[in-house]
Write a protein that binds this DNA or RNA. Structure first.
Lengths: 339, 339
DNA sequence: GTGAAAGCGCTAACAG
DNA sequence: CTGTTAGCGCTTTCAC
């Protein structure tokens, strides 16, 4: 049997001796079509296996029903367990509302903002999801300037200018640092994230505030900056462990760096959880299975993904958002690495 | 300044006193338009910031210039470091050829095949990328039946019916097992993947063949099956470590399970690399930073992503593929966990 | 070399 | 209740 091209409204109309308009309205469930006709149309549509052509409809409606997500980094070794979970969240929520998710990258040669510019100019998407927000985020500036709807995971400098969901990183690191202080640690080092990232500021501030509140002196040498990879956490920890007096606790701005720090501690012949405490942020699934298991701050990343998609879709549909900005309180997950 | 809607061919034509047709052809670089006119059109287009409307063009050309990728699993804790790297690969290659990448999921309530059915029926994509191939893969059956172009990462039962790229998992596990044998191990256990996955068969076969070739007896109790998560690797290793005589080496079908096995070995008070060897498969970045670093089999997942996209696009453009099927030889990465 | 006209498949304003 | 008409923005015959 030959493969024929999929049926269109035309085909149904012809088969039934009706006009395309009537068929369209019958299927859309409009009330101004006779019940009997509606039924006939529906049955014929089912029989012929009719499915609306997504693009024809979109061209007409001047909407794309598509959300854009541009991967915030490129390069061959972009490997973030956190990320796949987030993607599952946004993918599921988008699918549930019958929205498509257009995922793109900015290749090695391309500037990140060009990828946004292109999607907007060629009207490929109705709005964007942003992650890894930066303090003065060029993407935010661009989208605001062009009045393109978007929702971010993470705050920016323009706190009230756009909807976002974030986890209170300052509270998270405050709690983590306090935990260490309660266990008698006084030389608590911090492996931070690149300072242009918004969450880097919050988390660092939480760490500092906890120390200040406890009246514990702060040593600039105890604060290192990594790039969120295991490798950078590993190297930062090596530096910190060579200091004398040696820090007794290493807090990292994310789990991947904390994993690197674990390796460095082991390699230095020290015992994690005994000689040196280590903790992270994110609570990736792996954190429960390191040796020893990693103390960390949980972020409900899957739910956050769902949530920002729901917000963006509400925005696109002109529905009012109950909350423009959502700050979630993090949950401390205490395991053996930082008892 | 008010935001006006983006310029169309109409707008350019009007501004220049030309017809839409001519403008279209000038911009497309057709030769049958006067050089002077072409130049005028080009300049005006640039001046007005004209960008073609992606969907209008696609509707007309009856192509979508979009590739579909449906995440092979759902649920909140889908966290695979391997996956984000793959996505970066397919994203970059697609962007380079000016193709869009439509990423979708099948939500909890939806059957996986329905997601494919929908994308095909509503003509949202031109072709698909598939990963985690199964032996008798329903997706492959569906796409073959409907003559939808696709390329898989991983073989299926229908080896010659579709283009694929795969890493020779049998050779990988053969080499890994041989490495253990050379170091005197005789009780080598295996934590396999779900048997419906195609790669599970190959890897298990490699393990078995290496033992058989060496004349080492095989014990069914030494072969466990996990679901590719750390958690399942952890539990499988616990079972294996309780056996007497105890296996001296644990090989896992992927790195995530190997990481779980590392934790179980530590927890049992044994030393990895000394009392018990552990190895994995994938070579995720983390594998270099476990304690001890993990011996594994490297898969160039980023390049594989790029490659299958390149193949799919060639297919869609009707270009002949130099190779319909590509079997890559894996590279053994020997680290301290399995010396 | 240029333009008029048709149409991709769908929806919406307006008659009747 | 149903059909006619128009058009989303673009490409592609086919005349002139």
């Amino acid at each position: 049997m030959a493969v024929s091209s999929p049926p269109t409204l035309q085909d149904i109309a012809r088969a039934l001796g009706l006009s395309v308009t009537t068929v369209s309205r019958a299927l859309a469930g409009y009330s101004d079509v006779a019940p009997a006709t509606r039924e006939r149309v529906r049955q014929m549509a089912r029989k012929m296996g009719y499915r609306p052509h997504a693009w024809a409809r979109r061209l007409r409606q001047r909407r794309t029903d598509t959300l854009g997500f541009i991967i915030p980094t490129h390069g061959p070794r972009f490997s973030d367990p956190f990320f796949s979970e987030f993607l599952a969240g946004i993918g599921n929520e988008a699918a549930q509302h019958d929205y498509d998710l257009l995922v793109s990258t900015h290749g090695p040669g391309q500037r990140e903002i060009d990828a946004y510019e292109r999607m907007v100019a060629e009207r490929r998407v109705d709005g964007f999801l942003l992650v890894r927000t930066r303090v003065d985020d060029p993407r935010v500036r661009f989208l605001l300037a062009h009045q393109v709807p978007f929702v971010t995971f993470g705050r920016t400098q323009a706190e009230n200018a756009h909807p976002w969901v974030d986890v209170d990183g300052e509270a998270g690191l405050y709690a983590l640092t306090q935990l260490c202080l309660q266990h008698g640690h006084r030389r608590i080092a911090y492996i931070g994230a690149p300072p242009d990232l918004m969450h880097a500021r919050h988390r660092l501030a939480g760490y500092r505030r906890a120390l200040a509140d406890a009246g514990v002196p702060q040593n600039p040498a105890w604060v290192q900056v990594g790039d969120l990879t295991e490798e950078s956490g590993y190297r930062a920890a090596q530096v910190l462990l060579r200091l004398r007096p040696r820090p007794t606790a290493l807090l990292a701005a994310n789990d991947l760096m904390a994993l690197g720090a674990l390796a460095a501690v082991h390699e230095a012949g020290l015992q994690v959880g005994k000689d040196v405490a280590v903790a992270g942020f994110d609570d990736v699934p792996l954190a429960a299975h390191t040796q020893p298991p990693l103390t960390t701050v949980h972020q409900p990343i899957y739910d956050i993904g769902r949530r920002i998609v729901a917000m963006l879709i509400a925005l696109l549909r002109g529905q009012p958002l109950p909350q423009q900005q959502v700050l979630l309180q993090p949950r401390l997950v205490v395991r053996a690495s930082c008892p």
